[in-house]
Amino acid sequence: MSCIEQMKYEILLDRTTYKDAREYIVNNSDEVYYVSPGYKIFKDYHIIGVPPIALGAKGNALIFTYTKPCYGTFVLTVDNEDSTKEIGRLREAETEKVKTSLKKGKPPESPKVPSSGSYLDMWKK
């Protein structure tokens, strides 16, 4: 399905549940972005996951989940030019969301910094 297995990645957590992988990303990233299942990163990897799907940024490294049917979910990190681009794209999308919220007269959401609440609380907002 994707080029992930051909990329230089580091495994941060292996063979876990999706819920635990998401919590790991929320607790170990400088910035957290939430996307929908199927969100595409690195040109051809569509993220498989239970919404809300968390993507983390730590410096220039992107932290994300990778699920394999027989082995469970892994948390991987990639730190290269492509991850920098992906983080830039996530930040840009977040800025657009804020602009749209302001246009509609709603207070902007601030999803970048992980809150002290659980991921479920964030999703319920």
Binding site: T17, Y18, K19, S36, P37, G38, K40, H46, I48, G49, V50, P51, T67, K68, P69, C70, Y71, G72, T73
Partner: peptide, 28 residues
């Protein structure tokens, strides 16, 4: 995901968390 196809009915088999994760993705 790329809107090239879709189905009317889906039966998703699962016996582990990964199977449930794939089904959740399908649902979305």
């Amino acid at each position: 995901m790329e809107n090239r196809t879709d189905f009317d009915i889906c039966f998703a088999f699962m016996h582990n968390d990964a199977g449930m994760t794939y089904a959740a993705t399908m649902s979305a």
